[in-house]
Simulated scan of single mutants.
Amino acid sequence: MDWKTFQALLSGVNKYSTAFGRVWLSVVFVFRVMVYVVAAERVWGDEQRDFDCNTKQPGCANVCYDHFFPISHIRLWALQLIFVTCPSFMVVMHVAYRDDRERKYKAKHGDNNKLYNNTGKKHGGLWWTYLISLFVKTGIEVAFLYILHHIYDSFYLPRLVKCGVSPCPNLVDCYIGHPTEKKVFSYFMVGASGLCIVLNICEIIYLVSKRIARIANKLNRHKRKMAVRQNDYNEEAFDNSVDTMPTLRLKEQPPSFRSAVKSSQRPPGLKLEEKIRASAPNLSFL
């Protein structure tokens, strides 16, 4: 398998990932792919030849090896690495789909018009694609750990196994090659897989909490805008009521008792005399 090509494909996912996603990708390459390529492949390279049984019965060693190792650790880990990194390509394909839509939109409406502010930003459908990929990766990791534990009953590799499968003449002892070394690498790969599961869960929590915080901020801004508009409306209504109330009160206020009494007691002759005096010319200078 060409792991360099595999690394080149996954490197495109790094720029669309969060901080937890970048740490996850580093753990996959450094602690899993590199260990797999450099050391683990060589340790399990001659496992069937080193699987020795204390009998010369033809076919007994092969049958016992197939019984205890239905699938090799090294091949199971290779499948795990392939399957666990495939969901990351969903994000790359979604971004490529956005880029294609953006290109067609600009060709139709001009270069100044944009359909997306940033095609790689995790909003809308891309956010859901990224979140689903995290759930799928976590599920694949858990499934392969369960398969490994179910096939070998545990993550521990014994030095000696007893086999009574036909065509073995009786219960024979079979010895596994490099058992301690294989056990160390098994624990290491299982631990790296567990670390990747923890990072995926942390990234899921980070994305969901960030989305909830963004929605809460939008709701708070909307409430503040509505409160400001309501306050402005109340102030305008209050000002209008203050201006109109004195005039209404003056118009609706009945005449006082004193003014009514004065106007009724005043003789009409005085009013006529005042009018004549006001209209007569001033002859005092004569």
Rank of each mutant, 00 (worst) to 15 (best):
Q48S: 12
H109Y: 15
P158T: 00
G269T: 07
I82K: 10
V23Q: 12
G120C: 06
F6C: 03
N113A: 14
Y152D: 00
F68D: 01
F31L: 11
G125W: 13
I82V: 14
W128V: 10
F135N: 04
F238S: 12
D153R: 13
H149M: 10
A96I: 06
W128C: 07
Y130E: 02
H94R: 12
H73N: 11
F144E: 01
N234S: 11
W128R: 06
D50L: 14
Q7H: 08
L126E: 03
I204Q: 02
R214Q: 13
R221N: 10
V184A: 08
S72Q: 15
I132L: 15
C196D: 01
I212C: 08
A8T: 13
R266E: 07
D46Y: 11
L199Q: 00
D173C: 01
I140R: 01
F69V: 12
A39N: 04
H149I: 07
Y116N: 03
Q7C: 05
K251I: 12
D50V: 05
N282L: 06
K4F: 11
N118Q: 10
N62K: 15
I205E: 03
M226D: 07
K121L: 11
K182E: 00
K56W: 10
K218Y: 01
R103G: 03
A192K: 04
I212W: 05
I176A: 00
G45F: 13
L171N: 06
L25A: 06
A227W: 00
P167H: 04
S133D: 02
K104N: 11
A107Q: 15
R258L: 14
A213I: 02
K122Q: 09
